[in-house]
Amino acid sequence: MTANGQIKIFTLKIDGKDVSARSDQTVLQVCRENEYFIPTLCHLEGLSNIGACRLCMVEVAGQRKLLPACTTMVSEGMEVTTTNDKLAHYRKMTLELIFSERNHTCSVCVSNNHCELQYLSQKLGINHIRVPYRFPKFAVDASHPYFILDHNRCILCTRCVRVCDEIEGAHVWDVSGRGIQAKVITELNQPWGSADTCTQCGKCVNVCPVGALSEKGRSVAENTKRSGFLPYLTARRKEKI
């Protein structure tokens, strides 16, 4: 957007092809609109972008560093590369590092076959993890009447934190600690079931890309999610203002 809030139309090149974009769009939005594939985990349409997972890295001509497509705004004449060997290499490595930080065993996971991490790994051709696993052991929190939190599956995308803060307005979740000990917490790192600010709306469960948050009573591979409500809710709220 320009300083006076006016939206302009830019022309940019994605993988050598000319496309037009609005000046308030991110590179990711434009690529998706034009059906270019870019893997993402922390991004979710309807939530703010934080550039945490680094899977959406793209090359932009004239920039030495790779840039995350989700937090990079388009500009006039930009030349974006979405797929090449270097990007494929880094994306795979990033995914492997994510795997190494927690204990993701698909075969016994509630989200088996409905998991964004699993889907992307298959799509990017990951068949083993080349780095040593170094995950800590975390307890599972089943204190909530309807939901379960299993840190051992969490990828720290913070979608739950953001949906709870930005959409539900409760901000029950946040991230505590740092480094390998970082984990999502409810209120003062207390059992979820005892968190008074939780409205039990289930938005966090529905936006979680993996099996870290699930509904109670679901068994292996039964944790299906509905995150389609998000763009809808955001749009409705904008209308109201």
């Binding site: 803060d165 409760a170 505590s176 600690g177 740092r178 003062l188 600010t197």
Partner: peptide, 12 residues
């Protein structure tokens, strides 16, 4: 400030 945010900062 939300409790979890305070806790997050205190442990960071």
């Amino acid at each position: 400030v939300p409790l979890s945010k305070v806790y997050g900062v205190a442990t960071f």
